Measured scan of single mutants.
Amino acid sequence: MTYKLISNGKTLKGETTTEAVDAATAEKVFKQYANDNGVDGEWTYDDATKTFTVTE
């Protein structure tokens, strides 16, 4: 399945996607992506749209 990340960081804003077997796997990928880009904030997940959002 395709999962989307919306980043509302102070230094990184935008969207990216990943293919993953489940939401937990996608979350690990996205949290590593955010960490690699210096984004640390509040996370939410919408199962209906398969979208994670991180806001700093």
Rank of each mutant, 00 (worst) to 15 (best):
T44P: 00
A26R: 00
T11F: 13
S7V: 15
D36R: 10
K31C: 05
Y33A: 02
A23K: 13
A34T: 06
A34E: 01
A24W: 09
T44D: 09
G41V: 04
K13R: 14
K31I: 06
T18G: 02
L5R: 00
Y33C: 04
T49Y: 04
T11L: 11
I6L: 08
V39N: 03
T51C: 05
V29I: 15
N35L: 15
T18W: 06
V39P: 02
D46Y: 04
T55K: 06
W43V: 02
A20S: 05
E19I: 15
G14L: 15
A20N: 03
K10N: 11
T55H: 10
E27N: 04
F52D: 00
T44L: 08
N37H: 15
A34D: 01
T16N: 05
E19G: 05
V54M: 06
G14S: 12
E56N: 07
L12T: 08
T25K: 05
A24V: 11
E27M: 14
A23L: 07
D36P: 01
G9W: 07
K31D: 01
D22A: 03
K50W: 05
K10R: 12
W43L: 04
M1Y: 15
T18I: 15
Y3S: 02
V21A: 12
E15I: 13
N37V: 09
A23I: 07
E15N: 07
T49V: 05
M1W: 14
K28E: 08
K50M: 09
V54G: 00
V39A: 04
Y33L: 11
D40K: 14
T25A: 13
A26G: 01
D40S: 13
A20R: 02
Q32R: 09
G9E: 04
M1A: 13
N37K: 10
E27H: 10
T25C: 07
A48Q: 10
E19H: 13
V54S: 01
V21P: 15
T17G: 03
A24R: 09
V39C: 08
T51L: 03
V54Q: 01
T16R: 11
L5C: 06
Y45D: 01
W43I: 03
S7A: 14
V29N: 06
A20M: 03
M1C: 14
F52Q: 01
T18D: 01
K50R: 14
K50P: 01
K13P: 12
T25D: 09
T51N: 01
A23D: 04
D46H: 05
D46R: 03
D46A: 03
A24F: 09
K4G: 03
T53Q: 05
A24S: 10
I6M: 07
E19M: 14
T2I: 14
K13L: 12
Y45F: 06
D36Q: 10
N8P: 05
A34H: 03
G41N: 02
F30S: 00
K31G: 02
S7P: 04
E27C: 14
E15T: 12
W43F: 05
T49L: 07
D22F: 03
E42R: 08
Y45L: 02
T11V: 12
T25G: 08
A26S: 01
N8T: 11
Y3M: 02
E42M: 11
T55M: 09
N37G: 05
T11K: 10
N8F: 14
E27T: 03
V21Y: 11
E56H: 08
A24D: 10
T25N: 07
T44A: 10
D22H: 03
V39T: 05
Q32A: 12
K13F: 11
Q32F: 05
V54K: 01
T53D: 01
G14C: 14
Y45M: 00
D22C: 05
G38Q: 07
A26Q: 00
V54P: 01
S7Y: 15
G38I: 04
V21I: 13
V54W: 03
Y45E: 01
T16D: 03
T11W: 14
K28F: 08
V54F: 14
F52R: 00
F52S: 00
T53C: 09
V39M: 12
G14E: 13
V21K: 13
Q32P: 01
A48G: 07
K28P: 01
N8M: 12
V29G: 03
V21N: 11
A34L: 11
D47I: 08
K28S: 09
E27P: 01
G38F: 07
A20G: 03
A23W: 13
W43A: 00
D36E: 13
T17N: 06
D22Y: 03
D36Y: 07
E15F: 11
T16L: 14
K10A: 12
K13N: 10
T53G: 02
L5F: 08
A23M: 12
A26Y: 00
T51W: 01
E19Y: 15
V39I: 15
I6P: 01
A26H: 00
D40G: 08
L12E: 07
G9R: 04
E56V: 11
F30D: 01
E42A: 09
T44N: 08
T16E: 06
T49M: 06
L12Y: 13
A34Y: 06
T17H: 09
G41I: 03
V54Y: 04
M1F: 14
G9K: 04
T17P: 02
G14N: 11
N8Q: 10
M1I: 14
G41A: 03
V29Y: 15
T51R: 02
T11H: 12
T51S: 04
G41K: 02
T17E: 09
S7M: 15
Q32S: 08
K4I: 13
V39H: 04
V54L: 12
Y33H: 04
K4Q: 05
A26C: 01
T55W: 12
E19W: 15
K31T: 05
W43G: 00
E42C: 11
N35A: 15
Y33N: 03
D47G: 08
T17L: 10
A34S: 04
D40C: 12
D22G: 03
K50A: 05
L5H: 01
E56P: 09
N35W: 14
G38P: 01
E19D: 10
N35K: 15
Y3V: 02
D47L: 05
T44Y: 10
E27Q: 09
V21Q: 12
N37S: 07
T25E: 14
D47K: 08
Y33M: 08
G14R: 12
T17V: 09
V21T: 12
F30W: 01
D36S: 09
T44M: 08
E27W: 15
T53Y: 13
E56W: 11
A20W: 02
D40T: 14
T55D: 06
T2P: 05
T53V: 08
M1Q: 14
D46F: 03
I6Q: 06
E42P: 03
K4W: 13
E42I: 14
T2Q: 09
L12R: 04
D36L: 11
S7N: 05
F30I: 01
G9Q: 06
G38H: 08
A34W: 07
A24Y: 10
E56L: 10
T51Q: 04
E27R: 06
A26V: 02
M1P: 09
D36T: 08
I6W: 05
V21H: 12
V54I: 13
V29P: 00
E56K: 05
G14I: 15
T53L: 07
T55Q: 07
Y45T: 00
K13H: 11
D46L: 03
L5S: 01
T16I: 15
K10G: 12
A34G: 03
Q32T: 07
E19K: 13
G41Q: 03
L5G: 03
Y3C: 03
T18N: 03
T11M: 10
A24L: 09
T53I: 09
V29D: 04
G9F: 12
D40F: 15
Y33W: 15
F52L: 00
Y33V: 06
I6S: 04
D22P: 00
A20T: 05
T44Q: 09
G9A: 13
M1L: 11
G9M: 12
E42T: 13
D46I: 04
E56S: 08
A20L: 02
E15M: 12
A48D: 12
Y45C: 02
L5M: 06
Y45P: 00
